[in-house]
Amino acid sequence: MLYVKVKTEDGEELVLEVEGMTEDEIREELAKAGFKIEEIEVYEVEP
Rank of each mutant, 00 (worst) to 15 (best):
A33W: 13
L2M: 12
P47K: 08
E28M: 12
E38H: 12
E46W: 14
E23N: 05
V4Y: 05
T22E: 04
K36Y: 06
K5E: 04
D24H: 09
F35D: 00
Y43Q: 04
L16W: 12
L30E: 00
T22Y: 03
K36L: 09
E17F: 15
E19V: 13
R27F: 07
T22S: 09
Y3L: 15
V45Y: 10
G34Q: 02
M21F: 07
K7W: 13
G34L: 02
M1H: 13
E19K: 13
A33T: 04
G34S: 02
E17W: 15
L30H: 00
V45H: 12
G11A: 02
Y43R: 06
Y43N: 03
E28N: 11
V4W: 05
E44S: 09
F35M: 05
V42D: 02
T22D: 05
A33I: 11
E38Q: 12
V4I: 07
E29I: 14
G11F: 02
E23W: 12
E39Y: 14
I40T: 02
E13R: 04
P47D: 07
V45T: 10
D24T: 09
E46N: 14
V45D: 06
V4C: 05
E28V: 10
D10S: 12
K32E: 04
K32I: 04
V18D: 00
E19P: 05
G20C: 07
R27V: 07
E28T: 09
V15K: 04
E9I: 14
L16N: 00
V6T: 01
I37P: 13
E38G: 08
T22W: 03
Y3A: 14
G11D: 02
V45F: 11
D24L: 09
I26N: 00
T22G: 04
L30K: 00
P47E: 07
E17P: 07
E38L: 15
P47Y: 09
E12F: 13
K5Y: 10
L2P: 01
I26L: 06
Y3M: 15
K5F: 07
L30F: 08
M21W: 08
K32C: 09
E23C: 14
L2K: 14
Y3K: 15
T8H: 03
E12P: 03
E44I: 12
I37V: 12
L2E: 03
E23S: 09
I26E: 00
V4D: 02
E28G: 07
V4N: 00
Y3Q: 14
V4M: 02
T8Y: 07
I37W: 12
R27C: 09
I37T: 07
D10P: 01
V45L: 09
I26T: 01
L16M: 09
T8Q: 04
V18S: 02
E46H: 12
K32H: 05
L30R: 00
D10T: 09
A33D: 03
E17R: 15
G11I: 01
D24P: 06
P47A: 08
D24Y: 08
V42L: 07
V4G: 00
L30G: 01
I37H: 07
G11Y: 02
A31Q: 10
E39P: 01
M1C: 13
E41S: 08
T8F: 13
A31G: 07
V45N: 09
L16G: 01
D24Q: 13
R27I: 10
I26K: 00
A33Q: 12
K32Q: 06
T22H: 03
F35T: 01
V15G: 02
K36F: 06
E44G: 06
E28I: 11
K36D: 07
M21T: 06
V45P: 08
E19R: 14
E44P: 12
E46G: 09
V4K: 00
D24K: 11
V45R: 12
E19I: 13
Y43S: 06
E38D: 10
E9L: 11
E12C: 15
E13S: 08
G11M: 02
L14S: 02
E23D: 05
K36A: 08
E39W: 15
E41F: 14
L16Y: 12
R27E: 02
I37L: 09
V6C: 10
E28R: 12
A31K: 08
E44Q: 11
K32M: 06
I26C: 04
I26R: 00
L16Q: 01
R27T: 04
T8L: 14
P47F: 07
E13W: 15
E41Y: 14
P47C: 10
K5G: 03
G20H: 05
E17Q: 14
M21G: 06
G34C: 06
E9H: 10
A31F: 09
M1F: 11
E29C: 15
V45S: 10
I37R: 06
F35G: 01
E46S: 11
E25K: 05
G20T: 03
G20M: 06
V45W: 11
T8R: 05
K7G: 03
K36E: 06
E17V: 15
E23T: 08
D10G: 08
E19H: 14
E41A: 06
K32D: 03
V45I: 11
D24V: 09
A33Y: 13
E39H: 10
E44V: 11
T22P: 02
K7F: 13
P47T: 09
M21P: 01
A31H: 08
E13A: 05
E17A: 13
A33K: 12
E12D: 08
V45E: 06
M21E: 03
V15M: 09
V42N: 03
E29K: 12
L14F: 15
P47G: 08
E44D: 12
V18N: 00
T22F: 03
E12H: 11
A31M: 12
F35W: 11
V42S: 04
I37C: 08
Y3I: 15
T8I: 05
L14W: 14
V42Q: 03
P47I: 09
L16E: 00
Y43F: 12
L2I: 13
A33R: 14
I37Q: 11
K7E: 05
K7I: 15
L30T: 01
E44W: 15
D10N: 11
M21N: 04
G34D: 02
E28H: 09
E29T: 11
V18L: 06
V6H: 00
K7P: 03
E41M: 11
E25W: 04
V6A: 03
E39V: 11
G20V: 04
E9R: 10
E19F: 15
I26W: 06
T8S: 06
M1T: 13
V42H: 04
A33F: 11
E12Y: 13
Y3R: 15
T8N: 06
L14G: 01
I37S: 08
E17N: 07
I40W: 07
G34F: 02
T8M: 14
R27H: 03
V4S: 00
I40Y: 08
E13T: 12
V4Q: 00
V45M: 10
Y3H: 15
G11P: 00
R27Y: 09
E38I: 15
F35Q: 01
E19L: 10
A33L: 14
V6Y: 06
G34T: 01
G11E: 01
D10A: 09
E29M: 15
E39G: 09
E29A: 14
V15F: 13
V6I: 13
E13D: 06
K36V: 08
K7H: 09
E12R: 14
M1G: 09
K36H: 07
E9S: 13
E12A: 11
F35A: 01
K7T: 14
E13C: 15
K32L: 06
E28A: 12
E28K: 11
P47H: 07
K36C: 11
E19Y: 15
T8K: 05
V42T: 05
G34I: 01
K7V: 13
E12N: 08
K36P: 05
V6S: 00
M21I: 06
G20P: 03
E39N: 10
L16V: 05
A33N: 06
V15Q: 04
E19G: 11
L14Q: 03
M21D: 02
L14M: 09
Y3D: 03
E46R: 07
L16I: 11
E13F: 14
L14N: 01
E29V: 15
P47S: 10
V15I: 13
V6R: 00
M21S: 05
I40F: 10
E44F: 12
T22R: 05
E25D: 05
K32F: 04
V42I: 14
K36M: 08
P47W: 05
L30M: 06
T8W: 07
K5W: 11
V4P: 02
I26V: 06
K5M: 05
R27S: 02
E12S: 12
Y3S: 13
L2T: 07
E39D: 11
F35N: 01
E38R: 12
I40C: 03
V6D: 00
V18K: 02
K5I: 11
K32S: 05
L16R: 01
Y43T: 07
E46T: 09
D10V: 04
D24E: 13
T22N: 06
K7C: 13
V6N: 00
E9D: 08
E12L: 14
E29H: 12
E17T: 14
V6E: 00
G20I: 04
Y43C: 11
E13M: 12
K5D: 02
G11W: 01
E19S: 14
Y43M: 10
F35S: 01
M1R: 15
V45G: 08
A31P: 01
R27A: 03
Y43H: 05
E9Q: 12
L2R: 15
L30N: 00
Y43V: 07
V18F: 15
E39Q: 11
T8V: 04
K36W: 05
E19C: 15
M1N: 10
K5H: 08
E17S: 10
E38M: 14
E12M: 13
E29G: 06
A31W: 06
E41P: 02
E9F: 11
L2Y: 14
V18I: 10
E9W: 11
D10Y: 07
L16D: 00
I37F: 09
I40S: 01
E39M: 11
V45A: 09
E41I: 13
E46Y: 15
Y43P: 02
V18Q: 00
L2H: 14
E9A: 13
V42A: 04
